[in-house]
């Protein structure tokens, strides 16, 4: 992997951590999904994201490999947005998180793939994967939102409770200078709104960076469940440092 400038390194860490952390969360569904087919779909998405994370993390730091970055960094050194570290909750909660993030990632990769940054090749490939992720989230939002009274209520609850983590998505990331963040936010809002309304749900309202803790994942400030997730993810590597696998 070619070395990238330092500013890009920060960006690689941000994008790579997003993909890594969400991939881990989706991996937690293995064996627990509502049906076998959905198990496959979630695992597929997790694998796509893990693939992106591997490329991005190996671009991030010339001195550390992807494993060191994934397994030996403290919570405060992770640069993912807080949205992706949120626990799975019920299926609707997971789908709401997928909808918010996949629309964001798809639009972001779309912009990057048309640019000249070191991320353009990865984004060009990732844009196809994220199109599928977005489609999967859309399909399930429509079914749950326009399903039974109970699934509708749960889907709405998922969208509402994760809403306060969406503001962070549009904060400019150091090193991604060519991204038009205002256009990204506009496109995201429009797309999410059209899915939410088609699913006969209400667009969440209220602050998009609500609680004191929300909105600082890119600075290394994370929500409480993230520490427990990392403990599980990093346990083996920390118990046997330096082992090859």
């Amino acid at each position: 992997m070619s070395r990238v400038p330092v500013t890009s390194s920060a960006a690689a860490l941000a994008l790579g951590d997003d993909a890594l952390v969400l991939s881990h969360r989706l991996g937690e569904w293995a064996g627990h999904a509502p049906v076998l087919e959905e198990e496959l779909a979630l695992a597929n998405i997790a694998l796509d994201l893990l693939g992106q994370a591997r490329v991005l993390l190996s671009m991030a730091d010339g001195t550390k490999d992807e494993d060191e970055l994934a397994f030996l960094r403290e919570e405060r050194d992770f640069r993912n947005v807080q949205l992706v570290e949120q626990p799975n909750g019920d299926f609707a909660h997971t789908i709401a998180r997928q909808l918010y993030f996949s629309v964001y990632q798809h639009l972001l990769y779309g912009q990057l793939s048309r640019g000249t940054s070191p991320f353009a090749p990865l984004a060009g490939k990732g844009v196809l994967e994220t199109a599928y992720h977005r489609d999967h989230a859309r399909q399930w939002t429509l079914r749950l939102g326009d399903g039974t009274a109970r699934s509708k209520e749960r889907m709405q609850r998922g969208l509402d409770s994760l809403w306060r983590f969406t503001g962070e998505l549009f904060r400019p990331v150091e090193g991604l200078d060519e991204v038009d963040w205002a256009a990204l936010e506009e496109g995201w809002t429009e797309e999410v709104r059209s899915v939410v309304e088609e699913a006969t749900l209400d667009m969440p309202h209220g602050p998009r960076v609500g609680a004191w803790s929300a909105g600082a994942g890119r600075q290394g400030l994370h929500t409480e469940p993230f520490g427990r997730m990392l403990a599980e993810m990093q346990h083996l590597h920390r118990s046997h440092p330096g082992a090859t696998w």
Binding site: E37, L40, A41, N44, D135, H136, Q139, R143
Partner: peptide
């Protein structure tokens, strides 16, 4: 059918 298509793609 929509979901069947998507599941078929994965499987």
């Amino acid at each position: 059918a929509e979901m069947a298509l998507r599941n078929a793609r994965d499987l």
